[in-house]
């Protein structure tokens, strides 16, 4: 067998696959952010906190109501979407006429409040969440052992990502949405209820975060800090992909997951900054992001 820079190919394949798994989390989260930014022009800093809430709702459903993973997969995003709708109706909608910065500051504050509240209630060590029975165990792929659950995560998030892309870029509803962001007044004149559509978009965007939270619960500890650890990377993904670009968010998420996986083999100490190095380079060369368009 040939080695790549002293790394055996089995290890390399394994790392690439793991990178893909992490990348699918990045894709799912950055997709939600991109949808919200694209349609609402809001930089949603509360995204990480809502992802955390999604995981906690799953944990609460299991421990307080005895409802397992598959229930959580459906219910938890709904709960998070409901939280999102309330936030949008009561607070965010007042800020649309102002600069982006106000939305960013508001959601950043909300994120801190949510995290603080959960930290106060549940501590920082986190809570265990079991892998559902159906997805226990794993496959031996020869070059690595792939837990079934991780395989499921990749498939589930790819399906959701592509479905979202299709809904926004290829359906009539998506066309209304895109039109509403370009010229809300005109679209409203055609008899379409734009404020409701905006609220629904925000609800959908954060529901994606809630879904990612449920998917993450059995892999990571369900902990109040889980969102903070991820959100900065996800923002970098969105910036690299181009703010508001749906396809950009998906492809960049997966690509950066792979890149991070490779870094963990060749220079592990740098694995948590490699994304930001890429971000800096992209901003210098193509400030609108890889898939974004200049406004």
């Amino acid at each position: 067998m040939f080695d790549v820079l002293g790394v055996p190919p089995q290890v390399l394949f394994g790392q690439l696959l793991l990178g893909l798994i992490n990348g699918s989390f990045y894709a799912l989260l950055s997709l939600g952010l991109a949808v919200i930014f694209g349609m609402l022009n809001v930089i949603n800093f509360a995204h990480g906190a809502l992802y955390m809430i999604g995981a906690f709702v799953a944990w609460l459903l299991l421990n307080k109501l005895g409802l397992g993973y598959w229930w959580a997969l459906g219910l938890s995003p709904l709960v998070v979407a409901a939280v999102g709708v309330v936030l949008e109706k009561t607070m965010l909608s007042r800020l649309y006429k102002l600069d982006h910065l106000y939305g960013l500051l508001l959601t950043f504050g909300l994120a801190l409040i949510f995290e603080g509240a959960f930290r106060h209630l549940y501590g920082v060590s986190g809570q265990p969440y079991p892998i559902p029975d159906l997805l226990k165990g794993g496959q031996n792929l020869g070059f690595m052992f792939l837990p079934n659950y991780r395989g499921w995560v990749v498939v589930a998030s790819l399906v959701v990502c592509l479905g979202t892309w299709f809904a926004i870029e290829r359906t009539r509803l998506g066309a209304y949405l895109r039109a509403a962001t370009e010229n809300p007044v005109l679209v409203q004149a055609f008899g379409i209820n734009v404020p409701v559509m905006i609220t629904a978009t925000y609800g959908f965007g954060v529901a994606l975060a809630g879904l990612a939270g449920v998917l993450a619960a059995p892999i990571y500890q369900v902990s109040p800090l889980m969102g903070t650890n991820l959100i900065i990377v996800v923002f970098a993904v969105v910036v690299i992909g181009g703010m508001g670009s749906i396809l950009g968010a998906i492809l960049t998420g997966l690509g950066l997951g792979l890149l991070e996986g490779l870094t963990k083999v060749f220079y592990p100490e740098a694995s948590n900054i490699v994304v930001f190095v890429v971000m800096a380079i992209v901003l210098l060369i193509k400030p609108a992001g890889l898939f974004g368009r200049e406004r």
Partner: peptide, 20 residues
Amino acid sequence: TVRHPLGTSDFSSFLLQAQA
């Protein structure tokens, strides 16, 4: 040995190197 940054959430990559 392999060194990971403080506050890493995904260890699978490091664990796989350890396993190998």
